[in-house]
Amino acid sequence: MSAPVRIGIVGTGGIARVHADSIARLGERATIVGAVDVDPERLAAFQTEFGVEAGFASLDELLQHGHPDLVHLCTPPGLHREQALAALAAGVDVLCEKPPALSLAEIDELAAAERASGAHLATVSQHRFGGRATWLRERLADGRLGRPMVAVCNTLWYRPDAYFEVPWRGNWNIEGGGPTMGHGIHQLDTMLSILGPWAEVVAVSARQARPVATEDLSTAIVTFDNGAVATVVNSLLSPRETSYLRFDFEFATVELEHLYGYGDDNWKITPTPGHEAEVEALWAEGPHGNSGHAAQFAAVLDARERGLPLPVDTGAARRTLELIAGIYASSFTGARVASGDIDADSPFYASMEGSGAPWRESFVTAE
């Protein structure tokens, strides 16, 4: 058996605990060799809780003295670009919490740094790795459910005003956007991983209630290369919280409803009349299994052992960020946005806010 992969965790807040728990499930395949936090008390508490011997005040110290093979970035989004660049320059693989970058310009910079270093960058997109999501991608590939026609992708969550007292939340420059970027990204990414490339989006965003610079609601209609059409809602205003994906094929409807993670029981399939027997037989085949960080981490280690790019790779992450940029661009300009429209000449290439949210002036005045 090969030596355990040496992992460094950067940032020791709530999501870092999910990472540490998930790494522990990998057994002897991986070990945490160091943790980083600017808050000494938080760092010490994390070290005690998870038995991490080495603590560092900076990523540079971890890279120099901890000798990690792989770093997990569990910091606020505004730090991801700088930290990923530092790790890649040191030849260390990176697994970054979403979003890996705040703009298409940043993700392109990271892709260039990845190519130059020979190290790999991957984004945490744990909902891709549940068994039924894999099953559904296989059905798109083999066509046994027929043509995909209609989809629904809803992230209906609730965050009160107090949630945004953390300075980086609701801020374009640090979080990169509102629920479209920071919350709905997981459902959007899962939808794209199943339905494939998107062709065009038309969207509306609003700041309905929350004291933020970003949106607290967005809606979109997305057309895919394969002809499917999806409706999308991203909200932080919804007291009955749910994460919901629905795919209507020629021969069945497949639905997923959960909140922050799913198992087999969260999926449902409804055959088209006359296709019950073959659809039920397909459904019984599997694969099965829960989504979650542990499932993706295992896939990351598998890829490292085989010398392959880490899942979810930079190209896949960029496709999701491009759709998010398209939603903002359509929302703020009123135009239909096609895939490929947002290039270096577009204001939405360097920032998801682009030309400016319609409520920007009123927010600045209120501040």
Rank of each mutant, 00 (worst) to 15 (best):
T219W: 03
N234T: 10
R318A: 12
L321P: 06
D345H: 13
P273W: 02
W283K: 11
P273Q: 04
L236G: 02
A344K: 11
L259V: 15
D302K: 10
I324C: 08
A329F: 02
S235H: 07
V222P: 10
P273A: 13
Y349P: 11
T270S: 07
N234D: 15
G326L: 04
V337D: 07
V337K: 07
E276C: 02
P311F: 03
T333L: 01
A230Q: 06
D343I: 05
S218D: 07
S355Y: 08
G289V: 03
A298P: 05
E250M: 07
K268H: 15
Q296P: 09
W267P: 10
A317M: 05
T314D: 04
D343E: 12
D341V: 04
G340F: 05
R240N: 13
A335I: 06
T314W: 00
L301S: 09
P273K: 02
T270N: 02
G334P: 01
Y349W: 15
D343W: 05
N266Y: 02
G286V: 13
R336V: 14
G289I: 03
N266P: 05
L310A: 12
L259S: 06
A252F: 01
T272I: 00
V232E: 05
Y244A: 12
T314R: 04
E285D: 14
A316S: 12
M352P: 10
V300R: 09
T320K: 02
S291L: 01
V300E: 06
T320S: 15
Q296T: 09
Y349T: 13
V233I: 15
G326F: 05
E276W: 04
E255G: 04
G315H: 09
T219Q: 13
V254I: 12
Y349I: 13
A277W: 03
E278L: 12
L245G: 11
S331R: 03
E241C: 13
I327M: 14
H293V: 13
S243N: 13
S235D: 02
F251A: 13
T242K: 15
W283G: 10
A220H: 06
A299C: 08
A329N: 10
T270L: 01
A335M: 11
R318K: 13
H293M: 14
D265M: 07
F332W: 05
D302A: 09
P271N: 06
Y349M: 10
A284E: 14
A303W: 04
E353A: 15
G307R: 03
A325N: 02
T272D: 06
R319P: 02
P287K: 03
L256M: 12
G334K: 01
F332Q: 07
T272H: 11
